[in-house]
Design a protein around this nucleic acid. Sequence first.
DNA 1: CAACAAACAGACAGGCTTGACTGTTTGTTT
DNA 2: AAACAAACAGTCAAGCCTGTCTGTTTGTTG
Lengths: 198, 198
Amino acid sequence: MSSTVRVSQEERSRAMRARLMDATIDCLVEHGFGGTSSTLISERAGVSRGAQLHHFPTKNDLVVAAVTHLTEVRGAELAAAAAAVPAAHRTRDVLRMLGDHFASPVFIAALELWVAARTEPALLAAVEPLEQKVGRETHRMTVELLGADESRPGVRELVQATLDLVRGLGLAATISDDTRRRNRILDQWARTLDGALT
Amino acid sequence: MSSTVRVSQEERSRAMRARLMDATIDCLVEHGFGGTSSTLISERAGVSRGAQLHHFPTKNDLVVAAVTHLTEVRGAELAAAAAAVPAAHRTRDVLRMLGDHFASPVFIAALELWVAARTEPALLAAVEPLEQKVGRETHRMTVELLGADESRPGVRELVQATLDLVRGLGLAATISDDTRRRNRILDQWARTLDGALT
DNA sequence: CAACAAACAGACAGGCTTGACTGTTTGTTT
DNA sequence: AAACAAACAGTCAAGCCTGTCTGTTTGTTG
């Protein structure tokens, strides 16, 4: 009477890998890179240690896979948030949207990987190219959202500055989350930016 | 014939503690927080493990002491850099000075501690108040260097934005150090800031 | 259904880290 | 100088982390 549903190996494998990668990102957010041991990940994912090692022979394999996975999640979240920005108060709301993204768990996970990658060559090799890709996409998206004309001198730099600003705000938010402060700063920058872009 | 100079206990103790704290910061820069083991620190400092444990019973004691020490070093370096800013091209050079500081080893060490503190309560308790203090002092110093009038609406937020920007640039610099890009952005920011502050 | 391969489970060994502990040297105090 | 305390040195055990290994289950193929 075992009503066990038959699941294909490919399906099982994909699901298992996804669970492990998600658990890895969760652990990064909750315990930081240093506190993210492979044992902890397998427990969090509800996966036996043997299964984990079967899909990802080394911890580095898992982390690198999680980096790729995280990049996709970040891209998707950003795109969704961008689509939800209202038309009125364009600049202000675009900046707030960016500010929110750079204070979200996915950013925190990316931050942990970023900082760890600085002193781990194997991680850096995986993080650097993906980060550049996300950076370029985010830049392009921001230019489009703001309707900025990059052919005018200084405009490109101002968009870059805006993105580095929200990155800095996101870093500050990891220790003391002060949303009101962040929004005040972003609102003022929105006014200044509007003046400089037109 | 042992021409051993007699050194007071207090002096020896202070020197030993200083060597250990400096070595801790060096290790943070070179190996990251995760790669900074107490054994590594004692080797780097040229101090026996026993002596290390005598001065700092636990690793946490050492790291917390290093945080305090690092804060002092950061303050001193910033003050020295501030004093060296030329009078001409004021805004531009002030921003470049800040940009350089937030890309220096002391900032990297602080970044490692900052990120680690997010998931380590004992560290956070030491880092948070000191970071706020440094933040306030840096803000005050920047206002003074720029000759900004904070009584005017928006000025305070623009100075805060400037500091969060250099923090974001510093974070980006840890992976791909692109000084030219940074200076282009800061120069443009300086022009925009000058327009907004006057 | 038989044979095979992939997926899964859990035990185990080697290496590293931390802090406790014992012993020695050096400075201070009386 | 004797007695004491602080500074210094090095060893050791407990615990965790990683990755290897053996064995079991489940799906696939002929």
